[in-house]
């Protein structure tokens, strides 16, 4: 049992990784140009109202961006190219969901690693984790027994 700790942890991490990959690689459904325009607009931040998307906002700036999205789609640019077009001008900030940096994966990774370790700890028994080869520290050795006896005698004396 005790040798299972790392394999179990590794298997749990692998399973978590596979789930994350499935979510990331899920193919997007095909959209019509106006649906595409709407989708891009809903993923861009309105520059002068900030808490709304370009699709929801009625400001002139949002209107200018919507018009440009339409023009770029008509030119045959892809959704990613169009988003990049605006990122090049406004920065990552313009994306309501910025592209995932490494730091974004840290919380799920930390939770996953902790869960894997916890699972392994529960399945393999705590002794494996505390060092199975160690003598049980709760039972005093012969020398320690003698020392305890001596000290109790000194107290009584």
């Amino acid at each position: 049992m005790k040798g299972l700790a790392l394999p179990v942890a590794a298997a749990a991490l692998l399973a978590l990784g596979a789930l994350v990959l499935l979510e990331v690689l899920r193919p997007a459904p095909a959209l019509s140009p106006s649906e595409q325009a709407q989708q891009i607009a809903s993923e861009l931040r309105c520059p002068d109202c900030q808490s709304l998307s370009v699709a929801e906002s009625h400001t002139d700036a949002a209107g200018a961006i919507r018009a440009q999205i339409g023009e770029l789609l008509a030119q045959g640019r892809t959704v990613d190219e169009i988003k990049q077009h605006f990122v090049d001008r406004y920065g990552e900030w313009i994306l309501l969901a910025p592209t995932a940096a490494f730091a974004w994966w840290l919380p799920p990774l930390v939770v996953g690693a902790a869960l894997a370790l916890l699972t392994a700890w529960l399945f393999t028994g705590r002794r494996a984790w505390h060092g199975a080869g160690e003598p049980n520290a709760a039972v005093p050795t012969a020398g320690e027994r003698q020392r305890i006896r001596d000290e109790i005698e000194q107290l009584d004396a």
Partner: peptide, 25 residues
Amino acid sequence: MRLPPLRWLFLPILLVPLAWLLFTG
């Protein structure tokens, strides 16, 4: 055979990323 005390891994796994996020953020 003596296994490394794995329980001590919890501490750095949780604290190092957290400290890094706080420092940079």
